[in-house]
Amino acid sequence: MTEVIATTPGLFPLPDWAKDELSDLKGHQKDDLIAGDESGEIAAAYGRARTEVVDRQLEAGLDRVVEGQLRWDDMLAHPLSVHDSVETRGIVRYYDNNNFYREPVVTGELDFDGDVAAELDASADVNQAVLPGPYSLSELATDEHYEDDAAFLDAVGEFLAGEAEAFPEVETLFLLEPSLVTEAPDDGEDERASRAIDAVADAVDCEVVVHTYWGAIPEKPYAHLMDADVDAIGFDFVSDHEENLYNVQEYGTKDSVALGVVDGQNTLVETPEEINERIDWVQDNVPAQDFDTVYATANTELFYLPVNKAEAKLDALADAAATEVPQ
């Protein structure tokens, strides 16, 4: 029987009160923030917002609860942006949309930092961690230290593995890898990306989901991703359901799967019935694959949405998983 688990890729929108309060606090402490130091007031504001976001997921009834990644102003680039060996420079477009992040330029050795682990340690009731995948993080960054693409990707994988190893106990780790779709790796690089993902997965004792979105992975990188020792691959069935279905039908997938069946960038809220129809459509079209677990999730991060719409989508995901009939 297939278990349906309601979850998200994290990176939630900040509550409105927190946006106002943090904007004011950061405006008064700009020099400290450039140096990477957050005052007690800023940390406390983030802490209250984190508690609010976690409580809202529990209220919705999600099976996997994330910390929310509210401090991730640079989105998936965040774990590098706060590192001592990284300089943040100019403003760069975040993939192909109207969001921007500070370019992280790696100027020294990527040793252990512990920033994401500290966020998780401060978060009661969280049972799912979120990290950028090593390939996407390396593509979002600029390297001025390793000076070799292969060495840099390996270093980013080792860095993320060290960060993940310090995590408190969780049930699931979502590795977000949109760059596998938007900037698909070339021959040779696709195999290295799979090895880097392996390094992160091997560092944790929990289920690991590599979630991809904004389209479908090309066939060869997908085949190499299938070689990675992870528990599930995530597919964006909002942006491109046909090509993602083709990959699963042609090459198979892991025993479990993550299905992006809720639009993380559209304010239209899906009903639980619509979500279950999308899950059933995938399962009906791959009858040879009997999934152990289906992670029902948004296709992308949720920070694009207004808070009320993001929360409504949490409710819909949880309600869908609670009513889905196991296959």
Rank of each mutant, 00 (worst) to 15 (best):
76 L>K: 03
137 L>Q: 02
200 V>W: 09
83 H>F: 02
194 S>I: 01
141 A>Y: 08
114 G>K: 07
142 T>N: 11
127 N>H: 05
175 L>W: 05
108 G>D: 15
168 P>D: 03
99 N>C: 10
201 A>R: 01
131 L>N: 01
157 G>D: 10
146 Y>Q: 06
146 Y>T: 04
177 E>D: 09
186 D>R: 05
138 S>F: 06
84 D>T: 11
76 L>H: 14
93 R>D: 12
105 V>H: 14
141 A>D: 08
206 C>P: 00
160 L>K: 09
187 D>M: 06
184 A>F: 02
126 V>C: 08
204 V>Q: 11
89 R>Y: 07
203 A>P: 06
115 D>M: 11
100 F>V: 11
102 R>Q: 10
178 P>W: 04
205 D>K: 15
79 P>I: 08
154 D>C: 09
119 E>G: 12
128 Q>P: 02
98 N>L: 03
126 V>P: 01
172 T>M: 09
97 N>I: 02
166 A>R: 15
184 A>Q: 12
121 D>V: 10
111 D>G: 15
192 R>T: 10
154 D>F: 12
137 L>W: 03
80 L>V: 03
88 T>F: 00
174 F>D: 09
85 S>Y: 02
110 L>R: 00
112 F>K: 01
103 E>S: 09
92 V>S: 04
132 P>R: 09
180 L>G: 15
185 P>I: 15
190 D>T: 13
122 A>P: 03
98 N>S: 06
118 A>M: 11
163 E>G: 01
176 L>P: 03
103 E>G: 12
198 D>S: 08
189 E>H: 00
207 E>N: 07
161 A>R: 00
179 S>V: 02
174 F>R: 00
121 D>E: 15
199 A>N: 01
207 E>W: 05
103 E>I: 06
100 F>M: 13
79 P>R: 03
139 E>N: 08
147 E>F: 00
197 I>Q: 06
166 A>G: 03
128 Q>L: 14
127 N>W: 04
200 V>C: 08
98 N>A: 07
